[in-house]
Simulated assay, not measured.
Amino acid sequence: MANTEMIRAYIRDSGYKLQYIARAMQISTTALNQKLQGRTQFKLDEAERLSTMLGLSMTERDACFFDQQNRAERLMQRAQENRRRAEHSDPRAEQGDQAGAAAVRHPVLGTQPGGAQLARRH
């Protein structure tokens, strides 16, 4: 969710009217108001257009549109995905990797569907 209070402050400081900003962003004034009230989210291209119009630095833009809550949610999703992958991985492949084996492809034949050939590392 965007930090709408911060965005409103930047808009106030810019001196632009909401109607002008909405027109420049190619959205209706109602749509802009819904975004500024947190009812709908800014699309990436809208966030870019508004940031450019307001002359925001990358840091300011990130603080407005990509706040800490969003970063924390993305990190949690990645951690959950990694856990799911670890739970569903093939235990034989893990044992082979732990024993010092590496997956290799035959240069001409390739590997058989469903698995890789293992060769000892020396």
Rank of each mutant, 00 (worst) to 15 (best):
M1H: 03
N3P: 06
N3S: 08
N3W: 05
T4G: 04
T4H: 00
E5F: 11
M6K: 10
I7G: 04
R8T: 04
A9W: 01
A9R: 01
I11K: 00
D13M: 01
S14F: 01
G15I: 01
G15W: 00
G15Y: 01
Y16L: 05
Y16W: 06
L18S: 06
L18C: 00
Q19L: 03
Q19A: 10
Q19M: 08
Y20L: 04
R23I: 03
A24P: 02
A24Q: 15
M25P: 00
Q26G: 09
S28F: 01
S28D: 10
S28W: 00
T29L: 01
T29M: 06
T30A: 13
L32W: 02
N33G: 06
N33C: 05
N33A: 06
Q34L: 11
Q37W: 09
Q37D: 14
T40Q: 08
Q41R: 10
Q41A: 14
F42C: 02
F42G: 07
K43A: 15
L44Q: 13
L44N: 13
L44S: 14
L44V: 10
E46D: 15
E48N: 12
E48F: 04
R49N: 07
L50A: 03
L50S: 00
S51Y: 00
T52L: 14
T52D: 05
M53S: 05
M53P: 01
G55E: 02
L56W: 05
S57V: 07
M58W: 07
M58A: 09
M58Q: 12
T59N: 12
T59F: 02
T59Q: 09
R61S: 14
R61K: 13
D62C: 10
F65V: 06
F65I: 03
F65T: 04
D67H: 04
D67K: 00
Q68L: 10
Q68I: 13
Q68K: 07
Q69W: 08
A72W: 05
A72T: 06
R74V: 11
R74E: 14
L75A: 13
R78K: 13
A79L: 10
Q80F: 10
E81M: 12
E81I: 15
E81L: 14
N82S: 07
R83A: 15
R84H: 13
R85T: 15
R85D: 15
A86S: 12
E87N: 15
H88V: 12
S89Q: 15
D90G: 07
P91T: 02
P91L: 08
P91N: 11
A93V: 15
A93T: 05
G96W: 10
Q98S: 12
A99Y: 06
G100F: 12
A101R: 07
A102S: 09
A102Y: 09
A102Q: 07
A102R: 07
V104Y: 11
H106V: 10
V108M: 02
L109W: 02
G110Y: 06
T111G: 11
Q112G: 04
P113A: 08
G114L: 02
G115E: 15
A116Q: 09
Q117P: 00
Q117R: 01
R120A: 14
R120S: 12
